Amino acid sequence: MESFFKTFKREVLPKRHFKTKAIARLEILNYLEVYYNKKRHHSSLGYMTPLQFELSNS
């Protein structure tokens, strides 16, 4: 989890200032569902995305 939060803080938070909590929630969900799980490669998963990893192990 520490690695995730470090990455999240580096990739999302410095770039944005959220005007409301609702906007922050939407942006965080977008980051997780669109980018982090489907496009971002992870060294711990053999440089696959979490989605690719899950599909290859099903």
Rank of each mutant, 00 (worst) to 15 (best):
M1Y: 05
E2I: 07
E2Q: 08
E2Y: 13
E2F: 10
E2K: 11
S3T: 04
F5R: 09
F5T: 07
K6P: 02
K6S: 15
K6Y: 14
T7V: 14
F8L: 14
K9N: 15
K9D: 08
R10P: 08
E11G: 02
V12G: 11
V12T: 08
K15C: 07
K19Q: 15
K19S: 12
K19E: 15
K21E: 13
K21C: 10
A22F: 13
A22P: 07
A24G: 05
R25T: 05
E27F: 04
I28S: 05
I28M: 14
L29C: 11
N30I: 07
L32D: 13
L32V: 15
E33P: 04
V34L: 03
V34K: 09
V34W: 05
K38V: 00
K38S: 07
K38C: 01
K39G: 00
H42T: 01
H42N: 05
H42A: 01
S44E: 11
G46E: 11
G46W: 04
Y47D: 10
M48H: 05
T49W: 02
P50Y: 01
P50L: 04
L51F: 10
L51P: 03
L51R: 03
Q52W: 03
F53P: 00
E54H: 09
E54C: 04
L55A: 09
N57S: 09
N57T: 14
S58K: 14
